[in-house]
Design a binder for these strands. Structure first.
Length: 825
RNA sequence: GCGAGAGUGGCGGAACGGUAGACGCGCCGGCCUUAGGAGCCGGUGCCCGCAAGGGCGUGGGGGUUCGACUCCCCCCUCUCGCACCA
């Protein structure tokens, strides 16, 4: 290779200022801000709208590389849509209520508010340094009274609709910290903070009736198919856990009271040999007294009471207490013994099950442990009978009904339907659907959250705080160290209230709301963040919603996304929204891990965004993240090369500067390559495949380099390169666009480059010639080569001739211009 | 156990059923340099061969096809969710 290109670029380099992010990034950040560059257009804006939403940040500290990944992906899309001519709304806010603020405050002796807002400021500064195209005028924090006022309004709305209610429920309780813990805060049965074994405690709690929406939450997933990641939809489906079956009513022989069970297999009713109640079932103690076994039952209850909800070992045992009463099987009048056993859960179905040991593994194990009869009433088709005495496990599959009275010989699955219809006709049961989904427990005995706007009146019970009295403000000076009750209960002036209905002395609710309530509607608040008269402006909501693209981590696959969907449907039912699904498309980005492990402070492998940014610059961090893998895959920061990215952006820097000095028509080759690149990069952007888009841009950079080294013009190609680089490396692109290429206007208001189909098409392609499927030659041909010509060329190939020697061609597969395959014998 | 997804060079990763490994990291060689951890040019799946060329290669085994990383069946491994859901 000739040495002169190298020396040429060397002299260029000596004249040229080197690529230095520190010199360009702060400058543009300030100017964009001053120009209001990313403010969404108002109602008069004629462009089509695009609502690009990123899952907002929890202010637990400064940004780390996980944020860098997630927000880079969201930002590239927003910038790309701007360039495509959309009016883009790309807001940012903070999910700023929550337990970590309290924990940090307790640990450091500062107020949660101080800690929270200091972190927010730090994150906001980092976002700016990162080049995020946020509309800062819409910024919100869920812990601001101006925001949580409307979270309280939402609560009242649901309360009014009968969707918010209070009931007694078991919770996780840490005896040392004297507080309730979320399930996530119980690690292996221990309190995450003090390692004390967690126990169960029944408390009266507020719930949202999300179970009323189970069916719709399921049905409305249909249009999300293909637009949301499949696994998120699957997780939501599993979480809702719909089971079809029937309810069947048994009768307690000794008392005559009805006892209903839910079963998905009513075709096994003739195999019932016992009946089991959950220990917490409300009838248990009364029934136990009949058989005189209250003490045994109480022992189980006490032990359960001391067992954390998350500890399942307890329930895996097959212990149980015979209550001494009997249940009458409605299908055959048989009396079977009633037990109480911890393997039956109060939370699912009716808290009572019919015991069918022949066809349910848990029932089978229980029967063996308790010495109960196992009866086979379903047999595999064509089997000559199963002996219960020698069974080692239940037969839970479908089959033919036997020993089932009128249903003998009926096969499943039709048998299930037949039995249900028969039960309904006989008045012994009915078709039923059971869900795994429970109501959403939203009360927290915590300080740093939105107070629940309810007043407890001795006369009128739970009374809504009148809307005009909102917000119910969080008092500032509160001892928020864990006491057992909500810290707000210790603030007498907060608690004291008068009943809005009768004016009598009353007490304010002291629980605060789960932070998932805050985040279940924030995407609506962005649309009119300063409206002091209502939660959201319906006109703006009509204009912007639903969200066109939602970007965030899979960790919210269930909770946040399910809650937001629920709240949207509830507001639709309230007549306040015209749509029932908030997010049209969902994009999950992968996690950023470090040396094969999830990043965490405790593991000591947390990579701070600020450090990487200081080392490489924002553009390099962005591009490195995006180039490492497709957005949905995990990225191990230890295995990616920011150095490689920096060196590429340096090449871009030099090539564009040098190309800017050239003028005139591009060479045919470079022009075609440029158009081809635009075509492919556009396609990659549309598929969110930023990694391959960057690879294409790297190739274009190399082509420009070659053209320059050959002394040819490259300016036009460099311009296109910079335009396509703009969403990915916004600072560098802006600097090159305005300074090196000398444009007046920002690169970020330019249109995405167009390409000419004809030019983008390849003018020479490789014709693959195969003999029996093995590649024997590659011939460069025109893309519009005729089949005959292709076969002729292929036949003429020397190497192909060698392989055809002595063989008979039985078939020729020709797919011009790509392939000719000779099939021989 | 159930459900979902994934297994491709030393590494991150590319490949409408049609050139496997684009692009990058790393490594090797060259150029330029007083020097270079800068830049530029080239090479780089494994094996045989000076080369031309050939053989083998996408977790394993079958199948469909002229042709399979890609589609179908069975198996193995890994990751992630859920997990006594009656």
């Amino acid at each position: 290779m000739d040495a002169s290109p190298a020396s040429e670029s060397r002299s260029e380099m000596e004249r040229m200022v080197p690529y230095d992010p520190d010199q360009i990034e702060p400058k543009w950040q300030e100017r964009w801000e001053a120009e209001g560059r990313y403010r969404a257009g108002g109602p008069e804006d004629p462009r089509p709208k695009f609502y690009a939403l990123d899952m907002f940040s929890y202010p637990s500290g400064d940004l780390h590389m996980g944020h860098a990944e997630a927000f880079a992906i969201g930002d590239v899309l927003a910038r790309y849509r701007w360039m495509q001519g959309y009016n883009v709304l790309h807001p940012i806010g903070w999910d700023s209520f929550g337990l970590p603020a309290e924990n940090a405050a307790i640990k450091r002796g500062i107020h949660p508010r101080e800690w929270t807002y200091a972190n927010i400021e730090q994150q906001a500064a980092s976002f700016r340094q990162y080049g995020m195209s946020f509309d800062w005028t819409r910024r919100l924090h869920t812990s601001d009274p101006e925001y949580y006022r409307w979270t309280q309004w939402l609560f009242l709305k649901l309360f009014e609709m009968g969707l918010a209610y209070r009931k007694n429920a078991p919770t996780n309780w840490c005896p040392t910290d004297a507080t309730v813990l979320a399930n996530e805060q119980v690690i292996n049965g221990l309190c995450e903070r003090c390692d004390t074994p967690v126990v169960r405690k029944d408390l009266t709690q507020w719930f949202f009736k999300i179970t009323d929406y189970a069916e719709r939450l399921l049905d409305d997933m249909a249009p999300l198919e293909g637009a949301w990641p499949e696994r998120v939809l699957t997780m939501q489906r599993n979480w809702i856990g719909r089971s079809e079956g029937s309810e069947v009513t048994f009768e307690i022989a000794e008392t005559g009271e009805a006892m209903t069970v839910f079963t998905t297999r009513p075709d096994t009713l003739w195999g019932v040999t016992f009946f089991v109640l959950a220990p917490e079932h409300p009838q248990v103690l009364a029934l136990a007294s009949i058989g005189g076994v209250q003490d045994e039952v109480q022992t189980i209850l006490d032990r359960l009471q001391a067992t954390p909800l998350t500890n399942r070992e307890q329930a895996e045992s097959r212990e149980g207490v015979r209550l001494g009463v009997h249940a009458v099987n409605p299908v055959n009048g048989e009396k079977v013994p009633v037990f109480v056993a911890p393997y039956v859960l109060m939370e699912y179905g009716t808290g009572a099950v019919m015991g069918v040991p022949g066809h349910d593994q848990r029932d089978f194990e229980f029967a063996r442990a308790q010495g109960l009869e196992v009866r086979v009433v379903i047999e595999p088709e064509g089997s000559e009978g199963v002996d219960p005495a020698t069974m080692t496990e239940a037969f839970p599959h479908q089959g033919v009904m036997v020993r089932s009275g009128p249903f003998d010989g009926v096969e499943s699955p039709a048998s299930i339907q037949a039995v249900i219809e028969w039960l309904e006709a006989e008045g012994k049961g009915r078709r039923a659907i059971s869900y795994r989904l429970r109501d959403w427990l939203i009360s927290r005995q915590r300080y740093w959250g939105a107070p629940i706007p309810i007043i407890h009146c001795p006369e009128h019970g739970e009374v809504a705080v009148p809307e005009e009295d909102l917000p119910v403000k969080l008092p500032h000076n509160v001892d928020f160290s864990p006491q057992g009750a909500s810290p707000l209960a210790t603030v007498e002036e907060f608690v004291q209230a008068s009943c809005p209905m009768c004016g009598a002395d009353a007490r304010r609710e002291t629980d605060t709301m789960d932070t998932f309530v805050d985040s279940s509607w924030y995407f609506l608040r962005y649309l009119s963040p300063d409206d002091g008269t209502r939660a959201f402006d319906p006109v703006e909501v009509e204009r912007w919603m639903p969200v066109d693209q939602y970007t965030g981590g899979v960790e919210h696959a269930i909770l946040h996304l399910l809650y937001s969907r629920f709240v949207t449907k509830a507001l639709y039912d309230a007549g306040m929204l015209s749509f029932t699904e908030p997010f049209l498309r969902l994009q999950n980005q992968g996690q950023v891990i470090m040396q094969g492990a999830a990043m965490s402070k405790s593991r000591g492998n947390l990579v701070e965004f600020a450090e990487e940014r200081a080392k490489y610059g924002a553009d390099v961090v962005r591009v490195t993240m995006l180039f490492a893998s497709p957005p949905e895959d995990d990225v191990d920061w230890a295995t990616v090369s920011a150095e490689g990215t920096r060196s590429w952006l340096g090449r871009v820097w030099r090539a564009v500067h040098q190309a800017a000095e050239t003028s005139g028509e591009l060479s045919e080759d470079l022009r075609r390559f440029t158009h081809r690149t635009i075509s492919r990069v556009t396609e990659d952007f549309d598929r969110f495949k930023y990694n391959t888009a960057i690879a294409r841009l790297m190739e274009l950079t190399t082509e420009i380099r070659h053209a320059l080294d050959a002394g040819g013009p490259a300016r036009e190609a460099a311009e296109k390169l910079v335009l396509m680089l703009a969403p990915l490396a916004p600072f560098l692109a802006e600097e090159l666009w305005r300074e090196a290429l000398g444009n007046e206007e920002s690169v970020h208001v330019q249109s995405w480059p167009e390409f000419d189909e004809g030019l983008a098409a390849q003018q020479r392609v490789n014709l693959i010639v195969q003999v029996d499927g093995k590649v024997r030659d590659r011939i460069e041909v025109s893309p519009d080569i005729a089949e005959d010509d292709a076969v002729a060329l292929a036949t003429a190939s020397e190497n192909v001739q060698r392989h055809l020697e002595g063989r008979e061609i039985v078939r020729v597969i020709a797919r011009p211009p790509k392939l000719v395959n000779f099939v021989t014998r």
